[in-house]
Design a protein around this nucleic acid. Structure first.
Length: 300
DNA sequence: AACGACTCCAACCGCTCCCAT
DNA sequence: GATGGGAGCGGTTGGAGTCGT
């Protein structure tokens, strides 16, 4: 017996979301919080399926999403995590809180897969890899190391990632959308204006009016959506490797975890003989981060 | 300028997982 | 334990944009 569709297909709108729909969705989620997606279309009047609403929110409207321009460090993380976890994009995304699983999946399919294939063929070919290939790898390696440094330095002085201002609010996203949309459309409704006002108010709050009691509730609400599990972040920081003086235990745990990961990684590699290039990447990434962890642990 | 090939990404589809009953 | 329904995940696709000829 097949399951009924998640929503009545008749009268359900498909395709790209309009800024108006985005505003309605964001406003609703600001008021009620994410979750209970099934009730969203009925309560908002959106002619969208609940899944579509959830997807739009998680992949596009959710605050804190960083778009485009993957850094070499992020690339390294994705390659590493993909080798360890496989195509578990949601799991991988949990290590890169600014990125959505969809974004990572797309980036993997469009960029990294090709890159790895290229390198794989270079390393599998009877001829040694060309100088340009080696240069590319070296460059990537250096860039990754640099990113590690940046991350390390940042961690010394800046707020935690989930508090950083690289996190734009969803209303900022909407404002941007609106700007373009308002320009292209001469019609303006009072609804839109009031929503925009709301959006601007929200943006203003985010930008400085932190003392407003509302802000806390909103931030907390969003925080619960965005909150980046400490454990996950710690894992991510393994690559950054900057330990405070009181982190002996943490470092020991991380070393242990790293060893386990290495073992897992090796078994994974052995079970996936069709992916020899990953062995190279994994080894490189693991060795690099492991040696940094070990160096960090030694320094403590 | 026109056309086709290629790239990229937002969104959809179908499946699995998990929880409530 | 069985069943039903909602949420989440991963694979795939359609279309807009870009590039090369």
């Amino acid at each position: 017996m097949g399951r009924p569709p998640c929503c009545d297909k008749v009268g359900i709108k498909k395709g790209p979301w309009t800024p108006e729909e985005d505003i309605i969705l964001v406003t609703y989620i600001q008021d009620h919080g994410p979750g209970n997606w099934r009730s969203v279309p009925t309560n908002t009047g959106l002619l969208r399926c609940s899944k579509s609403c959830r997807l739009r929110w998680t992949n596009y409207l959710r605050p804190g999403i960083k778009r485009g321009n993957f850094t070499p460090h992020e690339e390294g993380m994705i390659i590493h995590l993909q080798a360890l976890l496989g195509n578990k994009w949601a799991a991988i995304a949990s290590y890169l809180p600014q990125r959505t699983d969809n974004d990572i999946k797309n980036y993997w399919n469009t960029h990294l897969k090709k890159k790895i294939k290229k390198l794989q063929s270079a390393f599998n070919s009877p001829m040694p890899p060309s100088e340009s290939t080696l240069a590319a790898i070296s460059k990537m390696h250096q860039a990754t190391g640099k990113s590690h440094q940046n991350m390390t330095n940042n961690n010394k002085t800046t707020t935690p990632p989930h508090c950083s201002n690289i996190y734009a609010s969803s209303t900022q996203n909407i404002s941007r959308l609106l700007e373009g949309w308002m320009r292209s459309s001469s019609t303006s409704s009072s609804t839109i204006n009031s929503h925009k006002k709301l959006a601007d108010q929200e943006t203003g709050r985010k930008e400085g009016l932190i003392n407003s009691p509302d802000v806390e509730s909103v931030d907390f609400e969003f925080g619960s959506v965005l909150s980046f599990d400490n454990g996950c972040w710690d894992k991510m920081m393994i690559s950054g490797t900057n330990y405070g003086s009181d982190d002996h235990e943490k470092a020991a745990c991380i070393l242990h975890e790293r060893k386990l990961q290495k073992q897992e990684s090796l078994s994974y590699t052995n079970n996936n003989n069709n992916n020899p290039a990953l062995t190279f990447f994994e080894k490189w990434l693991l060795d690099e981060s492991a040696s940094q962890v070990e160096a960090g642990a030694m320094a403590i």
